[in-house]
Amino acid sequence: ALYESTNNCSHNIIKLLLTIVYIPTFILGVLFNGMAIWFALRKIRKLTEPVIYMVSLMVLDLFVLFAIPFRIISYDSKKWDLGQTFCSFLESLYFVNMYGSILISVCICVDRYIAILHPFAAVTLRSPGKAAITCVIISAGVWAGTSCTFQLHNKDTPPVCFHGFSEATWENIILIVVLETVLLSSTIVVIFCSVQIMVCLQRSQKPDSPFTIKSKSLKIIVANLTIFLICFVPYHLALVLYYLVMNCILNDPHEAILSFLQITLACANLNCFLDGVCFYFVFKESVNLASVESNAMN
Rank of each mutant, 00 (worst) to 15 (best):
S10R: 10
L16G: 14
L17S: 08
L18T: 13
V21S: 04
Y22D: 09
V30I: 15
L31F: 12
F32D: 03
G34F: 12
A40F: 08
I44E: 02
L47Q: 13
V51I: 00
Y53C: 04
L60F: 02
L60E: 08
L62H: 10
L62M: 14
F63L: 11
I68Y: 08
P69S: 11
I73H: 15
S77C: 13
W80G: 00
L82N: 05
G83M: 03
N97H: 06
S101P: 10
S105L: 09
C109D: 13
R112P: 05
A115E: 14
L117R: 11
H118R: 01
L125C: 00
L125K: 07
P128F: 00
I137P: 05
G141K: 03
W143R: 10
A144F: 12
T149D: 01
Q151S: 11
P159V: 15
E167V: 02
W170M: 08
N172S: 08
N172F: 13
L175E: 09
I176A: 09
V178D: 10
L179E: 09
L179S: 05
S186P: 05
T187V: 06
V189D: 10
V189E: 08
V189G: 04
V189M: 07
V199A: 07
R203Q: 14
S204R: 05
Q205E: 10
T212A: 04
T212C: 08
S217F: 07
S217V: 13
L218I: 06
A223D: 04
T226D: 08
I227P: 09
L229S: 07
C231V: 06
L237R: 06
L239Y: 09
L244P: 12
C248P: 12
C248D: 15
E255V: 13
E255Q: 12
L258F: 10
A266G: 12
L270K: 03
C272V: 15
G276C: 03
F283T: 05
K284Q: 08
E285I: 08
N295I: 10
A296S: 06
M297W: 13
N298M: 02
